[in-house]
């Protein structure tokens, strides 16, 4: 996808939606807010000094950390994170199958946690850290889960594989000693139609063992 024309950019500047303004909004470190307490919880009831920026519906800048690198893209607010990755950043390892959060083929890590990139807006992840399957094996070294998937034949057509890999690798990040039940639980949202599940379980348990060594 191309960047918006200069004309569009200047329109956004006029509306007070400069890139800078947006990024500040995303960080929400604007001074002048007061935390109020209600019960045991507190949240900000007061207004910040500046009204929040209304973005879009045209393309707006979003900056985030993608696979360890800071990236900026221009997308419409309606663009999902999955679309942004696939169509704007050409990272097509992340797959879209159901586009509704029912299959987890689009799993990426958001601040280290697996989420469905089809059910998040790209603008939602401004300022956050995203890891895709392409980022799992940086500088040529495969993640042990990826190695084990190859070793144990946990791929067939391969369309669910990136999502499976991301689910299983996330599991090992938080639980280095998983049981078969844990692996099933971690992949319970991932749909595979070819039937790689048994080998996915086997591979993930093998990867866990290998990582402990």
């Amino acid at each position: 996808m191309k960047n918006p024309s200069e004309e569009q950019r200047s329109m956004q500047e006029e509306k007070g939606v400069s890139r800078r303004a947006f990024l500040r909004g995303a960080g929400l470190t604007t001074a002048g807010t007061v935390a109020l307490s209600t019960g045991l919880l507190s949240f900000k009831l007061e207004s910040p000094v500046k009204p929040p920026a209304v973005l879009g519906p045209g393309e707006v800048a979003v900056r985030f950390v993608l696979n360890g690198q800071e990236r900026e893209i221009w997308v419409e607010p309606r663009t999902t994170l999955a679309q942004a990755l696939r169509e704007h950043l050409s990272l097509t390892g992340t797959k879209v199958v159901c586009d509704r959060g029912s299959c987890s083929a689009c799993t990426v890590w958001l601040d280290g946690k697996p989420v469905n990139s089809c059910m998040a807006l790209a603008v939602d992840v401004a300022g956050r850290e995203i890891t895709t399957v392409e980022g799992l094996s940086q500088s040529g070294t495969l993640h042990p889960v990826q190695e084990a998937f190859i070793e144990h034949d946990a791929t067939m057509c391969g369309f669910c594989t990136p999502g499976m890999v991301m689910s299983c690798a996330a599991l090992l990040n938080r639980n280095p000693n998983p049981s078969l039940e844990d692996v099933k639980s971690a992949t319970s949202g991932n749909l595979c139609r070819c039937g790689t599940y048994p080998k996915v379980f086997e591979a993930t348990l093998a990867a866990a063992k290998k990582m402990k060594k």
């Binding site: 169509e87 390892g93 998937f149 391969g158 890999v165």
Partner: peptide, 23 residues
């Protein structure tokens, strides 16, 4: 023999390009 799938590396790294991925 239990030979590893020759295209598994592309699949586990997301490098495999399917029709849906081609631009």
């Amino acid at each position: 023999q239990r030979v590893k799938r020759v295209d598994a590396l592309q699949k586990v790294t997301g490098a495999a390009k399917y029709t849906a991925d081609i631009q």
